[in-house]
Amino acid sequence: MSGPTVKIVNIVESLLINNDLAAGRNQRRLAEAGVLTINVMAAPGAGKTSLIVRTLEALRDQARVGVIEGDIAGSVDTERVLAAGARDAVQINTGGNCHLEANMVDRALTELDLSQLDLLLLENVGNLVCPTHWALGEHLKLCLVGAAEGDDKPVKYPEMFAVSDVIVLNKIDLIDHVDFNREFFLESVRALNPGVPVFEVSCRTGAGIAEWAAWLLAQRAALGGAAATTEVA
């Protein structure tokens, strides 16, 4: 009889495979329902809720938009988006967790009537590190940066900018007051993600919002389904 043996076993799988699998299930559910889902990622205070509010206002007559608000605690942002015209909004309190995870979104989805939605905006927890790794089942990853945070964000948080499908530079009304080098920002973004669309907006003045909203609507139309092309009553 032989005693205990030591074995080396090759695994080679993503550390977060369990989350990836849960995200895949969310994605199938959202795709079946024809709900284009955007994971809105940014640093705290960059303007995630402000962009969601502006988007809701811009798309009010063109799409039915739901929102999932991820926050460490509180429900202020959920109240804001409902007041701005969200069809439905669900709050996820992450209980201290610095990012949303696919199983949290799974639970939130059961509280939404997906057949009543064309678009779903997920406001992630404010943080430029973790949300890049935790897939939620979204169709598109959006990285939002406020000009006041500095033009060096792509250099400091490369993965966030590399994995994003669209980048929104917010607070351009402040750009001349905060030493934000736009050329440097854009060159770093291009180095990480050559073809990514970049929208420059101000959620304060509304500049650039119409272009952003039109792009988003076009993405929804590309997903297919009748709802995207019909006017919302």
Binding site: P4, T5, V6, K7, I8, V9, N10, I11, V12, E13, S14, L15, L16, H133
Partner: peptide, 11 residues
């Protein structure tokens, strides 16, 4: 990368 490459286990 963010991978589990291998494990060493006692069986």
């Amino acid at each position: 990368e963010l991978l589990i490459e291998s494990l060493e286990v006692v069986t």
